[in-house]
């Protein structure tokens, strides 16, 4: 267990460093000493992308990791695409695999799910209409059932929110599977946070520039907010 978590973090760190280099988060913008907000945001984005992709790569075969990569890849930013492609495609095998994966996932995302959503909406409307009339008739009688319905609705809504948080969660219809992915995702998120924190600490202690310190402080305040 310990070794696993360690090796996971190490691979995450390795991937992330590669990603940082590739994304030019440190390299390209490092040469230009300018801390305007736009560039800062861009750099932050690049770091985040590289961290995410590193996490996904380090995790490997889970559904959420594939979804995360394909989300970033299909996010529309050319630079991100480049980063992802170069991060993932270190070896030929991986590249092949990744292409297949991306094709599948994009198809998955665009094709059936949206159509299903539309259908679902139609059906849902019908059901809701029916339930409305039905519940109007029996509001007084069935308190118990109403309470159950309310509880069910709440859990359903929260599950929906959680699905939007976990990458690729929207496409997972099976609750059982989704919960497993969620657990996996949470664990690797924790590892990611650990790695990034230790990296930041190690780097931060070296940076003695006051401007950077102020920047990091502002970042902290953001985090608290």
């Amino acid at each position: 267990m310990m070794q696993r978590s360690n090796s996971f973090k190490q691979s995450l760190l390795g991937h992330m460093l590669v990603g940082l280099r590739l994304g030019g988060a440190w390299g390209r913008f490092g040469k230009v000493v300018s801390t305007t907000d736009a560039i800062l945001v861009e750099r932050k984005e690049a770091v985040k992308v590289s961290a995410d992709v590193a996490m996904a790569l380090a995790r490997g075969g889970a559904r959420w990791s594939n979804a995360l990569i394909s989300n970033i890849y299909g996010g529309g930013k050319e630079k991100n695409k480049l980063v992802v492609r170069s991060m993932v495609g270190c070896s030929r095998f991986q590249k092949l695999r990744f292409q297949r994966l991306v094709a599948k996932l994009q198809q998955c995302r665009r094709g059936p799910t949206r159509r299903r959503m539309v259908e679902n909406k139609k059906i849902l409307k019908r059901i809701l209409r029916r339930r409305k009339t039905w519940s109007n008739n029996t509001t007084i009688i069935n308190h118990d059932r109403n309470a159950k319905c309310v509880a069910k609705n709440i859990t359903k809504k929260r599950l929906f929110v959680l699905k939007s948080l976990v990458p690729g969660g929207q496409a997972m219809d099976d609750e059982l599977f989704f919960l497993g992915e969620t657990i996996d995702y949470i664990i690797s998120l924790r590892a990611q946070v650990d790695v990034m924190r230790s990296l930041a600490r190690s780097v931060d202690s070296k940076s003695s520039l006051p401007t950077m310190l102020s920047c990091s402080r502002s970042g902290e305040s953001v985090d608290r907010g």
């Binding site: 440190w26 984005e45 990034m196 930041a200 940076s207 990091s216």
Partner: peptide, 11 residues
């Protein structure tokens, strides 16, 4: 936040 922090680190 951490990515923000890392991005602001000494280049």
């Amino acid at each position: 936040f951490l990515s923000m922090k890392l991005s602001t680190v000494n280049h």
